[in-house]
Design a protein around this nucleic acid. Sequence first.
DNA 1: CACTATTTTTAGATAAGTCTAAATTTATTA
DNA 2: TAATAAATTTAGACTTATCTAAAAATAGTG
Lengths: 216, 216
Amino acid sequence: MNTFTEENYLKTIYHCSLNAGSASTNQIAAATNTRAASVTDMLKKLADKKLINYTKYQGVTLTEEGEKIALGIIRKHRLWEYFLVEKLDFKWDEVHEVAEELEHISSTELIDRLDKFMEYPKYDPHGDPIPDREGQFKRQELKPVSAMLINQTGVVAGVGDHTPAFLQYLEKATLTLGTKLTVTEVVDYDHSVVLEIGNKKINISREVAKNLLVAL
Amino acid sequence: MNTFTEENYLKTIYHCSLNAGSASTNQIAAATNTRAASVTDMLKKLADKKLINYTKYQGVTLTEEGEKIALGIIRKHRLWEYFLVEKLDFKWDEVHEVAEELEHISSTELIDRLDKFMEYPKYDPHGDPIPDREGQFKRQELKPVSAMLINQTGVVAGVGDHTPAFLQYLEKATLTLGTKLTVTEVVDYDHSVVLEIGNKKINISREVAKNLLVAL
DNA sequence: CACTATTTTTAGATAAGTCTAAATTTATTA
DNA sequence: TAATAAATTTAGACTTATCTAAAAATAGTG
């Protein structure tokens, strides 16, 4: 078994690699709230265990085994988030921190039974897909609102920022999962976006538009 | 906040103190699967934090603050065990290890919501009382079968040994919680006890009789 | 392409929790 | 109560994960 800390590094490397294909030492340090030197130490350790592909100064990727572990952690995280929201009435902005702890409970029997108890949910409360026991999940084709065209319509299906502050903002603006919206204007000056939701119009900043993901 | 390890020591000290009034270094070492020297180190640390009363060579007791923390851990442990058995269909001999991990999830919000979700259970799957948020719980007056008199009747309400092996034995012998039994004989030779359950008679060893607790 | 800035790694240190072996204190018993 | 046994503590060391500061490698730019 791997330590709590090793699991967090693997999970972080997985997430960082999603965009760039690989993860850099500094990226990992920022994401885990540690220093680059500490990351280097851990990378050596994970490489020794054959959980990552690591060559000095080159950034890292997960090995098959490393990705399997990372997806296991992500599965746990998302299933627990679903549980917290659906069964214990937490709000979607309150679950991340608790799930960060729960994801390290080792029993896979527990997580499989929890999965069954909740009838095998496919998406967590933020729209992220939940991997199955084999680490398989459907990749949704989501697009940030900032990439939508004028008059294009989409349904809110995910977020690019999981912080409570952002989620609370969306909640207030009625931009929760499932909300149907149409882009009516992109303001030249600041790239903010005007959305039509039902028959109301609201303006969101470019920053928000980049982190609000829709299915078309 | 306290570390995982500190919490385990406090919990252990609580349990060891239940019988003797205080806990010895060796007792704690045995219960935590460490060496006496390690225990001494930790006792100093816990004493510095004013969580235990410690004088060299004299054994330890919990301070009010230490007991509060210990009862918090025990509350979490027992609520999670209840959850595992009642909601996720674990057997009573399968939950201890998982609960040993879950009891250290820090969020009290989580545990209070879990408590509500399960409608405030009073006893865990082994008959142990679940402390409320203030650490209050009803102490049951339980007696080991080994202390019962001939022809005395009782109802199985707890166990003195939480190991899977013992719990599985009880399960097989239909000595689960709520079972009504009468002592019909105590065998002189080996102090084994003959029980009448319904209209069947079974014989249990003195060892078992000591760890099987009944309400009269 | 050479120089500078940035990123990453190395070196050496620290804190937490553990260990073994030796010393000390308490308990037991002849 | 003196000698021995058992329990406990001290001393010194190890591991894990972290840090800072300095060195080395890579990337960016005139």
